[in-house]
Amino acid sequence: MAQETLRPTSQVRVPARRSPFADLGSWTIFAVVLLAGWEIGSRLYNQPYLLPAPSQIIRAMGEDYALVLDYARITMQETVLGFVLGAVAALLSAMLFVWLPKTIEDFLYRIIVTLNSTPFVALASLAVVWFGLGITSKIIIAGMYTFFAVLYHTHKEFISVDPMREYLMDVYNAGWLQRMLLLKIPSALPIIFTSLKGGVMAAVNGAIVGELFGAFEGLGYMILDSRYVGNTVRVFLAAVFCTLIGWVLLGVVTFAERLLLPWHVSMARGKSS
């Protein structure tokens, strides 16, 4: 009956997969144009206290690289630990919410909505009061930022699985954990990853905010300290490193997404069937 046959791809013209470096050229041009524009603008303006030129930032980097790299390492550490903590806590909470009876779920959810509508900055300053000026308070703040970024979407995805799929799991007598592992988590994964990407950025923010509220090291401390002494160049330098941390971590999450979601439509672009 079946007439479908398979043949080796060598016999078929398959559109080539897009190289991940295909955009490298256009990105380089974009960066060069942007940096050149900034450089020229800042030299014409000639107020390094307000707008330092990229070349000045690079020079500052050359002078202070040991300190900057050390601070970047500390902030990175806080961000990564906070992100992992927040993401795991958010995923577990979302699972817990599905498991709990409706009334308790609603109750907990209201608490979380309340916390989320409290200004994060207020919560962050509290965290510094409670957990001290060390790395712990920053990890907790970064974790908190991530937690809220990830929780909502994940929970929403868990409870809005296609009812027919739920029926299918009913029909095959699936237990709670099986339903979670075999249906809810895989079908929520694309959204979970999207929210993790947002969560990574939020974690960087959280770590910096934590450092602004009181620290002796880290990029946030550097921003605050340099601003006090009027060293705008170093503020820029710290900001550039924050961005770099964000990019690196975003890259890691995107890479993990590629590994874990080969079946997902947004990953299949450029592949041919």
């Binding site: 799929r165 895989p186 079946w263």
Partner: peptide, 9 residues
Amino acid sequence: FQQPILFEW
């Protein structure tokens, strides 16, 4: 069912 309802993962 009407739809195959396969898990795409």
